[in-house]
């Protein structure tokens, strides 16, 4: 109770994930699909959680709001601290208060995450009235202002529109309006632009950037390093359930310390320069029950040595940088050239 009065900001974070492990029950026993993940979301920042499919990035994001599939997944260890509460162990009342009011979420497919039976206006009003004691009229006025804030043209008239009448880009704006309706301090966006055209992607990312600049903490879950490069402040690279590297976007992408990060950077087909051949990473991401005991990337890593067979702790090569590679100091890896 004492820490509630905005105590978080003194520590500089809006949401802190501390040693989060999520386990799944499989035929071969219980295995961790996410292990020992820690990072902070700070106000005014877009923090990227980047990785390929099977890296555990989406499970991590869902677990923050306890939206993971409870039939198969369980938060095994760790704390998710937000607004003085621990989401990992919170009861239903606290959960309901935090969801939407403090932390809210935007998903990949806007069409699949909105009820097609309701108009855009009544959907937003519903969200507002779930957390605030206001009249329908007042809520509807707020809804109009929200749509205007997220850049929906002609917001008053759009309130009466049904989801199928809107384009994907407009609908994603509506979803963002719903997500920020109760002024949460944290917004989790899970691949928010993957289903959209580049021109629309740019608009949505610029909107998220503006929301961050206005003070919100945004967790951007994505596989697209170019988007991360252009819009995010901090990056956490996930591989096989672990964060293998993190730090300021510019530093991590231009001077990667982990061979996996460097491999990803080299594999991105970039508009800016044409290469004769894209660099590739041999093999594929192992399923959770086959994660190696030592460095999880070692079997695919061209720099792997005997010392990589032992489990790797988080190392701190520089201020604000973390990396899970025992050989990082001996490697000189290539990163992104700054774009002229």
């Amino acid at each position: 109770m004492i820490t509630r009065a905005g105590g978080n900001h003194e520590n500089g974070y809006a949401l802190r994930i501390d040693d989060l492990s999520v386990s799944a029950a499989t035929a071969g026993g219980v295995v961790d699909v996410v292990s020992g993940v820690s990072f902070d979301l700070r106000p005014c920042e877009i923090t990227a959680l980047a990785g390929e499919s099977g890296s555990g990035k989406t499970v991590t994001a869902l677990a923050v709001l306890r939206l993971h599939d409870v039939r198969t997944l369980r938060i095994r260890t760790g704390r998710i601290l937000v607004d003085g509460a621990d989401m990992a162990s919170a009861g239903p009342d606290v959960l309901r208060r935090i969801r939407g009011e403090k932390v809210s979420m935007v998903f990949q497919e806007p069409m699949n995450s909105i009820d097609p039976m309701y108009t855009v206006g009544s959907a937003i009003v519903e969200v507002i009235r779930a957390h605030q004691r206001v009249t329908r009229r007042a809520a509807l006025r707020q809804a109009g202002e929200l749509l205007e804030h997220v850049g929906v043209p002609d917001p008053r008239n759009r309130l009466g529109a049904y989801p199928f009448e809107l384009s994907g880009g407009l609908l994603q704006r509506v979803m963002i309006a719903m997500a920020i309706a109760n002024q949460p301090s944290v917004l989790i966006a899970d691949e928010p632009t993957t289903a959209l055209d580049v021109t629309v992607q740019q608009q949505i990312m610029q909107l998220l950037r503006r929301l961050a600049d206005e003070g919100m903490s945004i967790l951007l879950v994505t596989h697209d390093l170019a988007v991360v490069s252009e819009y995010a402040d901090t990056i956490n690279v996930m591989y096989a359930g672990q964060i293998v590297e993190s730090g300021p976007v510019r530093e991590v992408l231009s001077e990667p310390e982990h061979p996996y990060t460097a491999g990803l950077v080299g594999a991105v087909p970039d508009v800016a320069n044409r290469r004769l051949e894209l660099s590739t990473i041999p093999g594929r991401v192992p399923p959770p029950d086959e994660f190696p005991a030592g460095c999880r990337f070692a079997p695919r890593c061209s720099f792997a040595e005997a010392e990589c067979d032992a489990p790797v702790a988080q190392l701190f090569p520089r201020e604000e940088r973390r990396v899970r590679c025992v050989r990082h100091a001996q490697l000189s890896l290539e990163g992104v050239e700054p774009y002229a």
Binding site: V198, T199, Q201, A226, V227, Y231, R250, V265, A272
Partner: peptide, 14 residues
């Protein structure tokens, strides 16, 4: 032109 302007580019930091 619009298309090319919209594409995110690696190394164009914010």
């Amino acid at each position: 032109r619009t298309l090319l302007r919209s594409v995110p580019i690696m190394g164009r930091w914010r």
